[in-house]
C-alpha cells in the first residue's frame, strides 16, 4: 500500500515540524494525515507505535518512563482499535444490506406497478411514497372493457420490509379474483379470507376498494377499516368524509362488508388516502384534517396529478422532510 510505505516518513516530518514550532498549519497537516490513515485502515495502536518509534529515533536519550508510558497507551488504544475494526466491518455489512433492500424495493416497484387510467371526463392523480425504502401502502387501478375503473388503496399496519412483503401477496390475491372486481363488498370478503389464512396474526391490512362506473357516473365502494377519504361536492364547494364501515382484513374470517354507492356529478371529486397523510406529524402535533382539506381547496384549479404532487410537497415540508409513515393520496375528479 503506497500510503503505508510513505506513512513513516510523512509522520516523522510532521512531528519534527511541530516540535520545532507549534503552528496551526502543522496541526492541519496532522488532521489530513489522520484522515488519510483512517482511509487506509491504519489502526490507532499502529499510530501510537509509530509515534513512539519515531520519538525514540529523534531523541535516543528519551527517558525510559516515557517509553513505558507509550507501551501502556498502546495497550489502551488497542481496545479502541478493536472496536474500530468491528465498526468498519459493521459498516460494510450495513452497505450490503442497504443495497439488498434497494434491489428488493425495485422488485417491489415492478411487482406493484399500476398505470393510471386515461379516460375522457375523469381526471385521476395518484402518489405513493414510502417512509423508508419499501412501501407498505399500495394502490391499484384496473380499467375494464365496460367503462368501469376499479380503485384499490391499501395499507399494511406497520412499515418497511414486512409490510412490503405482505403487500405483494395482497396484490396477487386481488389479481386472482377478477370475477369479483365489480362487487367491492364481495371482493373484500374474499381478500379477507386470503389475509386471514396467509398473513401473520400480528399483521393487519386496511383497504378501501371502489369501482367507478364511467357510463352512469356511479361510484360503488366498501372499506375494510381503511382511513376514510373525502367526497368533494362541486356545487356546494364542500367536503364530506366518506363513511364506510368494515373490519380490517385478517381479523375475523366471517367478516361481511357493506357496499355503498354515490353518484358523482360534474365538478365532484373523490379523495382517497392512507393514514400516512392524516398522520403527518409536525412539531405542533398531527396535521389536522382541516389543514389537509385547505390544501386541497387551494389547489382545486389544478389537474388531479398536480394536486396530489403539490400536497405531498407541502406536507413533506411541514414535517421537515421526514416521513413517518408511507404516504398515499389518490384524487379522482369528474370534469365539468
Amino acid at each position: 500500500m503506497p500510503f503505508r510505505e510513505a506513512m513513516e516518513a510523512k509522520y516523522r516530518d510532521i512531528l519534527a515540524k511541530y516540535i520545532e514550532e507549534q503552528k496551526e498549519s502543522t496541526l492541519y497537516l496532522a488532521q489530513k494525515f489522520s484522515r488519510k490513515s483512517i482511509e487506509n485502515q491504519v489502526t490507532p495502536e499502529e499510530i501510537i507505535s509509530l509515534h513512539k518509534m519515531i520519538l525514540q529515533e529523534m531523541y535516543p536519550e528519551m527517558p525510559t518512563y516515557v517509553t513505558h508510558s507509550f507501551d501502556l497507551l498502546l495497550e489502551i488504544m488497542l481496545g479502541y482499535g478493536f472496536a474500530y475494526r468491528e465498526h468498519q466491518s459493521l459498516r460494510h455489512q450495513q452497505k450490503e444490506l442497504r443495497s439488498e433492500i434497494e434491489i428488493a424495493a425495485n422488485v417491489q416497484h415492478t411487482l406493484l406497478d399500476t398505470k393510471i387510467p386515461v379516460v375522457d371526463g375523469l381526471d385521476i392523480g395518484a402518489i405513493s411514497v414510502p417512509a423508508r425504502l419499501m412501501n407498505g401502502d399500495y394502490y391499484n387501478f384496473v380499467q375494464d372493457e365496460n367503462q368501469c375503473i376499479s380503485i384499490a388503496i391499501a395499507d399494511v399496519i406497520g412499515k418497511g420490509i414486512p409490510a412490503a412483503l405482505c403487500m405483494s401477496m395482497i396484490k396477487y390475491a386481488m389479481d386472482s379474483l377478477p370475477g369479483y372486481r365489480n362487487e367491492p363488498s364481495v371482493l373484500l370478503e374474499n381478500l379477507n379470507h386470503v389475509v386471514e389464512q396467509n398473513v401473520d396474526p400480528s399483521m393487519f391490512v386496511t383497504m378501501f376498494y371502489g369501482i367507478y362506473n364511467h357510463e352512469h357516473h356511479l361510484f360503488s365502494y366498501a372499506s375494510a377499516g381503511h382511513e376514510p377519504g373525502f367526497f368533494y361536492d362541486g356545487k356546494k364547494k364542500g367536503f364530506t368524509e366518506i363513511t364506510a364501515r368494515g373490519l380490517m382484513l385478517g381479523i375475523d374470517k366471517k367478516t361481511k362488508y357493506t357496499q355503498y354507492e354515490k353518484k358523482i356529478e360534474p365538478g365532484d371529486m373523490i379523495i382517497l388516502l392512507s393514514d400516512g397523510v392524516t398522520e403527518c406529524r409536525t412539531s405542533e402535533g398531527f396535521v389536522e384534517k382541516d389543514t389537509l382539506l385547505t390544501y386541497i381547496d387551494k389547489y382545486l384549479h389544478l389537474s388531479a396529478q398536480e394536486i396530489v404532487n403539490r400536497i405531498y410537497k407541502d406536507l413533506e415540508q411541514l414535517q421537515n422532510f421526514q416521513l413517518r409513515d408511507d404516504f398515499t393520496l389518490i384524487i379522482l375528479k369528474r370534469s365539468v
Binding site: G79, F82, A83, Y84, R85, E86, H87, S89, L90, Q93
Partner: peptide, 10 residues
C-alpha cells in the same frame, strides 16, 4: 459482529 456480549466493543 455485534452479537455476543461485546456490545460494540469489537
Amino acid at each position: 459482529d455485534g452479537y455476543s456480549t461485546s456490545g460494540g466493543l469489537g
